[in-house]
């Protein structure tokens, strides 16, 4: 046990032993005294300034007079825990839809006639040309579901929707 404490002080103890030993320190006065003495030895060797020999005793007396600190353990709320799998499911669903659209478009062999595409693109304004350039630049990115596909401009007229 003491050799493990020595290794703990040097941060060389495995995690399982570490947690067990930290628990043991809470109930074993001899171990705590070794913890204190071995840190003192290390600090003397590193030439840290020493404090009064009764520093810890005086501090403990002050600490004993302090109200006990009790910090509530933070637990993730039920709502938050429920939302995580939902958001993951939403992500999967989105990727599935995009993938399906890409596959569906590809399986139709780029069915949009080249002539029609040309006609569409001829009508693009400057903004459309900019988007077209952007898509062209990224067309060959691996994993891009829109690679090889043209985009379509859409507009919405509220007056016609009524």
């Amino acid at each position: 046990m003491k050799e493990q404490l020595s290794a703990l002080i040097d941060c060389e103890l495995e995690a399982n032993d570490r947690d067990r030993l930290l628990g043991q320190l809470g109930v074993d006065g001899d171990l705590r005294q070794d913890w204190h003495d071995w840190h003192l030895v290390g600090d003397v060797m590193q030439e840290h300034p020493l404090l009064s020999p009764d520093f810890m005793k005086r501090f403990s007396e002050r600490l004993a007079a302090e109200p006990i600190v009790m910090v509530p353990v933070k637990r993730r709320s039920l709502l938050r825990r429920a939302l995580v799998p939902l958001s993951a499911a939403a992500s999967v669903a989105f990727v599935s839809v995009v993938g399906w659209q890409a596959y569906y478009g590809a399986s139709r062999g780029n069915a949009v006639p080249a002539v029609a595409l040309a006609q569409q693109t001829q009508g693009l304004d400057d903004e459309g040309a900019r988007i077209q350039g952007y898509l062209a630049a990224h067309r060959h990115d691996s994993g891009n579901p829109f690679a090889g596909r043209e985009f379509m401009q859409a507009s919405f007229d509220p007056s016609q929707a009524k």
Binding site: G26, H36, H48, M56, E66, V69
Partner: peptide, 17 residues
């Protein structure tokens, strides 16, 4: 933080100097 003052004393013993 869970109320163990001795744990805090171990930190004091370690860092006082």
């Amino acid at each position: 933080q869970a109320g163990d003052k001795r744990a805090f004393e171990l930190l004091v013993a370690k860092y006082q100097r």
